[in-house]
């Protein structure tokens, strides 16, 4: 099933939660909506599910106008951040709920419902918990039951709101891999919302980066990481060093000193230079366009992370750099720095 969202606008009072959002999700995709809190990602998900209504715009599920139907008629599986399991029902009854509330004409008989619930509990590997109540389960188990419950209605699409947000780090990692494997088996078109970039990049086929109610970039995890479209995306995904620079006539200056890098077509004026921590080359003093004193070095794994105070320019700028451990840096050492890969974006006020 495909999902198409066209020109969606949603306002809460004067605050625009969604500002003209367009999105197309293909059949069988596992899409991540990634953004900081308040970026509108959950609102968008709830609008697709029918739990919220847009002020303007269209939502098409499989080409059919979804806004003409209420949430209960959209056949959309929704998994809530805090699970929202029915606390007075056993795990079994929770999963069976969607089947039991079907109109009598299409409702399955008890034996079929039981078999189906059993199948779903097997799928999430929790069939042995079927008589427990939600309060007796761990967070990870609750989330898997919530997923089984959503799948029970054979949803056309599956929507997950911060599915792992309330879980601890270890369980979260496992569930991530599990969700990806599950998706590659059942191939339901799915959208999940997250504020965790690692989660988005690791699980999704495509990532939609949102900020302030707008879509900043849509792309594969590789695209959004390696070719961020906007300053926001560059700053939000991956760790970046951001330096205020001036661009004029193709040359780039930091605090008045020219940097030996090309402007790459960036417009003249106040700009921001974005460099990934590991894309800053460290060399002996005098060999690069930036210079600074190493203040502090921490070594772990394959890298050493150095805190460098840039010399020159107004004020003291301290940046963090990831360098390979081929040459151990010393605190107090003067080094030169040269951006290997970088992006320049016009500075927003």
């Amino acid at each position: 099933m495909t999902i198409e969202v066209k020109n969606i606008v949603k306002k809460f009072g004067s605050f625009a939660a969604l500002d003209n959002v367009d999105l197309k999700v293909d059949q069988g995709e596992l899409l991540a909506l990634l953004g900081p809190s308040g970026s509108g990602k959950t609102t968008l998900l709830r609008i697709i599910a029918g739990l919220d209504w847009p002020d303007a715009g269209e939502v098409l599920i499989d080409g059919e106008n979804a806004l003409a139907r209420g949430a209960s008629e959209r056949h959309v599986g929704f998994v809530f951040q805090h699970y929202a399991l029915f606390r007075h029902m056993t795990v079994f009854e929770n999963v069976a709920f969607g089947l039991r509330v079907q109109p009598r004409a299409i409702r399955k008989d008890e034996a079929t419902i039981r078999a189906r619930v059993k199948e779903l509990l097997d799928l999430v590997q929790l069939d042995w918990l079927s008589d427990r109540y939600p309060s007796q389960l761990s967070g990870g188990q609750r989330q898997r039951i919530a997923l089984a419950r959503a799948l029970a209605i054979e949803p056309r699409i599956l929507l997950l709101d911060e599915p792992f947000g309330a879980l601890d780090a270890k369980v979260r990692k496992e569930l991530r891999q599990w969700l990806r494997s599950l998706h590659s088996e059942i191939h339901v078109t799915s959208i999940f919302v997250t504020h965790d970039q690692e989660e988005a990049l690791e699980v999704a086929n495509r990532v939609v980066v949102m900020d302030k109610g707008r879509i900043e970039q849509i792309g594969t995890p590789g695209e959004v990481y390696d070719h961020p479209a906007t300053a926001f995306v560059h700053g939000f995904i991956g760790e970046s060093i951001v330096l205020p620079v001036d661009v004029s006539g193709g040359s780039v200056r930091l605090g008045g000193r020219p940097l030996n890098i090309a402007a790459n077509g960036a417009a003249s004026g106040a700009s921001k230079l974005f460099v990934r921590r590991h894309d800053m080359q460290i060399g002996p003093a005098g060999s690069g366009s930036l210079e600074g004193a190493v203040r502090h070095v921490r070594s772990f794994g394959p890298i050493q992370r150095a805190e460098v105070a840039l010399s020159g320019g107004e004020g003291k700028t301290i940046i963090e750099i990831d360098a390979p451990r081929d040459r151990e840096l010393q605190a107090g050492e003067i080094v030169s720095l040269q951006p290997r890969r970088y992006r320049i974006f016009a500075a927003q006020d």
């Binding site: 099933m1 059949q27 069988g28 189906r116 199948e119 779903l120 097997d122 799928l123 999430v124 590997q125 918990l129 427990r132 109540y133 007796q136 389960l137 761990s138 990870g140 188990q141 898997r144 799948l151 054979e154 949803p155 056309r156 270890k170 369980v171 496992e174 569930l175 891999q177 599990w178 494997s181 599950l182 088996e185 059942i186 191939h187 339901v188």
Partner: peptide, 27 residues
């Protein structure tokens, strides 16, 4: 695609995370 949602339940068992299978007993 909908009908295939759970037909492969048994194959998928392998994907289920294993770590939190050791569940604490109900209080």
């Amino acid at each position: 695609t909908q009908s295939s949602v759970v037909t492969s339940a048994t194959e998928l068992r392998a994907y289920a995370p294993t770590a939190d299978l050791t569940v604490s007993p109900p209080p």
